[in-house]
């Protein structure tokens, strides 16, 4: 019905041993769209996000980004997992921001941002450094370029992590609860950076508990529970007029 999606998720299943975490999830994300995924803990929303860049292997279903199958290739009637090197190449198109930042503590903020373009995309170091400085400026940290992560606040670390994800010029950026590990007064600065990205037309999929952010920035809000998408739609519809009982119950708890 629409043009091809930037991210297309089709019928994905994932189980950890006997536990079915994802039980058939479909999702389409257009280029430039901001999708916020909400849901109670244990609902599978993080696993869903991690499946998109193949940090989790799927049991069934597939993920396509810009038309390219992620983590697998089709051969006859099967999906064969790609070689690690191929998966790593695909991941350079997918930015990922972790809940715990996962900055490399032995590298400075600048070195953190420069690392992937040099190592994974074989960009010349000079070029990568110039780009990294611009990105650090964009997240408001040009004065911290030479600081080691441990000397930065949580909010600053997460902003460096966002710059690091952007350095690869990804087609889509995934955020896994980017503000959950932060002190309340530091949440705002990270959300500001994310809002700015959204305004610049970055395709984003965000798992978060920040309902305010979802209401203000999201084009689409997706509510996940028990490994399934319960309902999705514009924020005004899902957040203010949820149709499903489980959505209502969840929103009643977090709002």
């Amino acid at each position: 019905m629409t043009t091809t999606a930037m991210v297309e998720i089709k019928g994905i299943h994932k189980s950890f041993g006997p536990v079915d975490v994802l039980r058939g999830v479909d999702l389409r994300v257009r280029a430039g769209e901001v999708v916020v995924i909400l849901g109670p803990s244990g609902s599978g929303k993080s696993t869903l996000l991690r499946s998109i860049n193949h940090l989790e292997r799927l049991n069934r279903g597939y993920v396509r980004i810009d038309g390219e199958l992620i983590g697998y290739r089709r051969s006859g009637g099967r999906l064969r997992e790609l070689k690690e090197r191929e998966v790593l190449r695909q991941r350079t198109h997918i930015g990922f921001v972790f809940q715990n930042f996962n900055l490399f503590p032995h590298l400075t903020a600048l070195e953190n941002v420069v690392e992937a373009p040099v190592a994974a995309q074989r960009k010349p170091r000079r070029e990568a450094t110039e780009k990294a400085l611009l990105l650090l400026e964009r997240v408001g940290l040009s004065d911290k370029a030479n600081a080691y992560p441990r000397r930065l606040s949580g909010g600053q670390q997460q902003r460096v992590a966002i710059a690091r994800a952007l350095a690869l010029e990804p087609k889509v950026v995934l955020f896994d609860e980017p503000t959950s590990a932060l002190d309340p007064e530091l949440v705002g600065e990270v959300l500001d950076v994310m809002r700015d990205l959204a305004l610049r037309g970055t395709t984003m999929i965000v798992v978060t508990h920040e309902i305010g952010f979802a209401r203000e920035v999201a084009d689409t809000v997706v509510f996940v529970d028990d490994g399934l998408i319960v309902e999705q739609g514009p924020p005004a519809q899902v957040l203010d007029h949820p149709r499903h009982e489980r959505t209502k119950a969840f929103l009643a708890k977090v709002l």
Binding site: R85, L88, R89, R91, I94, F96, F98, A116, A119, A120
Partner: peptide, 20 residues
């Protein structure tokens, strides 16, 4: 999480070990 972050950034395996 360090190796996971390196993998998410597409850093080649050998370099993950040597550099991270």
């Amino acid at each position: 999480g360090q190796l996971e972050a390196a993998a998410a950034l597409g850093i080649p395996r050998r370099r993950q070990i040597r550099r991270i």
